[in-house]
Write a protein that binds this DNA or RNA. Structure first.
Lengths: 201, 201
DNA sequence: TGCTTGTTGACCGATTCGGTTAATACTGAT
DNA sequence: ATCAGTATTAACCGAATCGGTCAACAAGCA
């Protein structure tokens, strides 16, 4: 790729990146046209090909950027240092929401890319995804101190409940399209407090 | 459309319908090619155009079929007659899962169609969607008898928790792609029993 | 053998695609 | 005003794909 891309204003860089995320998140790799991306970024197709030598390079660049950005946001959120599981979940969702505010289609793009199997990109795509995929999964139950929770409580089911509800939260938010950061966070905070009264001693 | 379509074996009808759901659920209307649909249904493109006069007609037929089928499954499930909210949620999800087993991409198709805005189909699409969209939404809290639940419990938050977790359930299931009916239902039953011990007196 | 019905391959004109290139607009120093 | 260098684009290209048609083929059956 042309290093001059990084000399562009951050605003213009992000406009191009977000246009890429949006188009690639709505269609498969093959059916995402570069001219559509250029149009959404409000630049000409020629300019897009000036900064990125071809479609494949641009696509892989987006994937790499998406992962680096996600990691950065999650690390900065402090959710990994958190020992209180409720605060951990809150900080995790908070980071995801902040991310969505700046890059609204990034997570959908990454999700779609994860299942992309076009011959032109799949091999190199896997290579980019591999080192990150082992991190960041919240699916499994973290170690918990049972003495903190109500007696007889099934901690596995408790965690499953909270994990699924968080997923449902993100899902609903993306469907409706609007990312009202403050309201969503307030609602989620309320739900977490509800869980605390329910689960904690 | 050609009425002879309905004279086909149910298996062949469903093969064509499912191929349509799959392709249209993965791309926008405009970017869903009829030859791709024909290929996935294992028939020739010519035959597809023999049963449906053009792409638009086929697409709208799929939408109408999707809604009728969904309504049928939901009504048959008995979830609307159920007064126990836990059983109601279970039966609702049970119906959705049975539906997914026979038409794996139908719900994704319907979701995508809901936001489709291609000029060629959007007007007639809205007309088909409108009468159904007021039904079937579980987002709002149904009337509940507070005396059944633990004192001081916030019923709104309880319902929100369960609703979001159910959404997360469906979401996770569709992402992973596999629809292991029995396992999913067993897991969900377990989660519901967990909620019962948590919420009921 | 013929007749009907189900099904297809080959084709058409229009459009779209990724990518190139020559020309234009812009900028800042002289 | 000029000019050099850079940022940006319109116009173009060959190849592929699209929705849709149609004449021909296959299959059953009288």
């Amino acid at each position: 790729m042309n290093e001059k891309f990084f000399a562009l204003s951050k605003e213009k860089q992000n406009r191009i990146i977000n246009a890429g995320y949006r188009v690639f998140s709505k269609n498969s790799y093959k059916k995402s046209p570069m001219n559509e991306i250029a149009f959404e970024a409000d630049i000409s197709k020629s300019l897009l090909f000036f900064y990125f030598k071809n479609k494949k390079e641009f696509y892989l660049f987006l994937m790499k950027t998406a992962e680096e950005t996600t990691m950065k946001y999650l690390l900065d959120s402090g959710c990994y240092q958190e020992t209180d599981i409720f605060e951990m979940m809150y900080k995790g969702l908070e980071a995801k929401i902040k991310l969505m505010r700046q890059y609204p289609d990034m997570s959908n793009f990454a999700l779609k890319a994860y299942y992309e199997d076009d011959d032109e990109v799949k091999n190199e795509l896997r290579k980019i995804i591999a080192p990150y995929s082992k991190l960041s999964t919240n699916k499994s139950l973290p170690p918990l101190d049972p003495s903190l929770y109500k007696d007889g409580l099934d901690l596995r089911l408790m965690y499953q409940d909270m994990y699924l509800a968080s997923e449902g939260y993100m899902y609903n938010m993306q469907q409706t399209g609007k990312v009202d950061v403050d309201k969503v966070l307030k609602d989620y905070r309320q739900l977490i407090n509800f869980w605390k009264t329910l689960y904690l001693k």
